[in-house]
Design a protein around this nucleic acid. Structure first.
Lengths: 235, 235
DNA sequence: GTAAAGTGACAACATGCATTGTCAGAATGG
DNA sequence: CCATTCTGACAATGCATGTTGTCACTTTAC
């Protein structure tokens, strides 16, 4: 349903060692094929990661605790993931995709004005964070300082959101600011602003109303948009 | 020289065990008093932390590596800091204070207009980050995910910067936005925007010119400021 | 000169963790 | 029924680290 595609296809698939002599046929178990069982275990681990990381933090999300939460043993962890970091990366990309798709689906509605598009997208952003607090914690807080690879994932995600805003700006006809300023830098700044608002919101236990958050963030966007229009008409 | 004072006086001072029977007189060494030597070692450790953390990351800043970089042994580490985290916290607050004071000193110049104040403060911000890349790495990147306490320090610092902007906004007469929006939330957003721009800048190896960064961030501030003035005059 | 404080190198201990390996028992297919 | 696969519990290994302790040596004070 969404337009922008991501390049996040680095799934870890372990090649099972299999001797050629004995075919080692794979059985179905509990009425499920081997692949189905494996996929189910993988999902259990991802769900456990969401729970443990969002509640205990990344550093406490040890392989043991993750497996305990998933009701599985360590062996099945390494069946689906090369290591702890791989699971966390997968989790982050999964949750980021959820948030992104929610926003893209929201602004895909036809016939929206410029401000309506901003408001709809930002509304979906904050609504997702409010209704899925575990997602919020993972995306906004627990991703940091895990590893270089995870940091890279985070900055890529920020850049993607900034690029998305840039594309929208072009479509909506508010791109290209005055020369000394840098368009993509401004989009990055807007993303940083909204994310910082969201962090503050979550950190305060969602004390403010979602409406307030939406209005505050829309104000930033409209201010920048209006500022641009004034500049281009006055020159 | 700066106005805003921080409440960061949680220095760790270890009480040396001292038997009452033998006075255990403390000697001067290498022409320095015991306190001077201790202070020097403490500074060596802070300097080492800046170097190691900015270049190797926090997780690689082990007690051993920190001591090796400082040319001291583990004993002197625990003489000045209760643990690894204490040193990191001290380092972060030290570097944050450097950045904050640079900005406060810059905008303390008398007779600045609203936009000049914004530009001067932001200019000092980016200039400090450019001329002290180790400070930039520690403040913008390596602080994350270290511990709950460090996260709290970070969010406090962000909040302080937001409050500073709020105070400036009041002095400059651009405070109080329309009701549904939240003033302090908008200030927090502006801080998040500038910080995100700075991260992107550092991450790209300071590829863009500092001027470009300043203009982009000033544009955000002036856009919000102008938007506010239009709103208050039109109502 | 000498006793005590200061120093530096490094061992020792405890801990926690990722990752791999073992093994007995349960479930399956034929 | 029975060989094989699958599963779960958990031991074993290896590694890195924080933190404390030891000890020989150096410098100071008197």
């Amino acid at each position: 349903m969404h337009v922008v595609t991501l390049h996040l296809t680095t799934r870890h698939v372990k090649i099972l060692p299999m001797t050629n002599s004995s075919p080692a046929r794979r059985r179905s178990y509990r009425g499920q094929s081997p692949d189905a069982r494996r996929a189910e275990r993988r999902q259990l681990l991802l769900q456990a990661a969401l729970e443990v990381v969002s509640s205990q933090g990344y550093s406490n999300a040890t392989v043991r605790s993750l497996c305990a939460s998933a009701g599985l043993t360590e062996r099945y962890f390494y069946e689906s993931f090369a290591n702890r970091e791989a699971l966390l990366g997968e989790l982050y990309q999964q949750q980021t995709a959820l948030l992104r798709d929610a926003m893209l689906d929201a602004i895909a509605a036809p016939g929206l004005s410029t401000e309506q598009t901003m408001r709809t997208g930002l509304s979906a952003f904050f609504e997702t964070l409010e209704k899925q607090p575990e997602l919020a914690r993972v995306i906004l807080f627990e991703i940091f300082g895990v590893s270089k690879a995870m940091d890279t994932l985070y900055y890529q995600a920020m850049e993607e959101f900034a690029e998305l805003i840039g594309e929208l700006a072009q479509v909506l006809g508010i791109a290209e600011f005055s020369k000394p300023a840098n368009d993509s830098m401004i989009y990055a700044g807007l993303v940083g602003a909204v994310v910082q608002m969201a962090r503050r919101w979550v950190l305060n236990g969602y004390h403010e109303s979602r409406e307030s958050l939406i209005e505050s963030s829309v104000l930033l966007f409209t201010a920048v948009s209006a500022h641009h229009q004034r500049q281009s008409t006055s020159s």
